[in-house]
Simulated assay, not measured.
Amino acid sequence: MSFTLATWNINSVRLRAGLVEKLMREEAPDILCLQECKSPVEKIPREAFEALGYRWMVARGQKGYNGVAIFSKLPMQEARAEDWAQMGHARHIAGQLENGVTIHNFYVPAGGDIPDREQNEKFGQKLDFLTHMRDDFRAAPPEKSILVGDLNIAPREDDVWNHKQLLKIVSHTPIEVDHLAQVMEGGDWVDVTRKDIPEGLLYSWWSYRAKDWDAADKGRRLDHVWATPDIANAAHGSRVLRDARGWEQPSDHAPVFATFDL
Rank of each mutant, 00 (worst) to 15 (best):
A59P: 11
G187A: 06
V190Y: 00
F106P: 00
D135A: 01
A139H: 09
D261G: 02
I103K: 02
K63V: 06
P142L: 01
R14I: 09
H179T: 09
L147M: 12
D178M: 04
V101W: 01
S39P: 01
S2A: 05
R156V: 12
R117H: 12
E118P: 03
D230A: 10
P229T: 05
I175C: 12
G112W: 03
W56R: 08
W189L: 15
Q182H: 06
I44L: 10
L180R: 00
D191F: 10
E42R: 09
I175W: 11
P255G: 03
G112K: 04
V20F: 02
P45L: 01
G219K: 11
P250V: 06
N152Y: 01
D150Y: 05
E98P: 02
A234P: 10
N66L: 11
I10W: 03
R220P: 00
T102M: 15
W161F: 11
L201E: 07
V58I: 07
W247N: 10
R60Q: 10
T259G: 01
A90C: 08
T4R: 11
C37M: 09
W247K: 11
K63A: 15
L222Y: 00
P174A: 07
A90R: 02
G124C: 09
F106M: 09
K63M: 01
D136N: 06
W161K: 12
N120I: 13
Q35S: 10
L19V: 11
A140Q: 06
D30Y: 06
L32D: 00
L201D: 14
A244G: 10
P115I: 10
E98I: 02
I231D: 04
L222S: 00
V101M: 08
R117F: 06
L147N: 01
E21N: 08
P109V: 03
D252I: 01
L202E: 15
D261A: 14
R25A: 05
E42F: 05
Y208T: 01
T173A: 14
E121D: 11
H163S: 14
M57C: 06
L74G: 01
K211Q: 10
L202G: 08
A234I: 08
A140H: 12
T193P: 03
R242V: 10
W206M: 12
Q62I: 05
G246P: 13
P229V: 13
T259H: 01
H172K: 07
A181S: 11
L74I: 08
G219T: 01
E118K: 08
R117C: 03
A69G: 06
P115L: 08
G88W: 15
D217R: 15
K126E: 14
V58R: 00
A85M: 08
P198T: 03
D113G: 13
D230E: 13
R60V: 14
E26S: 05
G111A: 09
D223R: 00
H236F: 14
V58A: 00
I175D: 13
D230V: 07
P155N: 02
E47I: 13
R194V: 07
A17Y: 03
Q35M: 04
S207R: 09
N162R: 09
R156D: 15
D113I: 08
W247R: 15
L180W: 07
K122I: 08
E98K: 05
E121R: 10
L15D: 02
H179K: 04
L262P: 11
K126G: 07
I93K: 00
N120P: 03
K38R: 12
K122F: 04
K164V: 15
L5G: 02
P174S: 07
T102I: 14
Q182K: 02
H179M: 14
I10H: 13
Y208H: 10
P45A: 00
V160I: 12
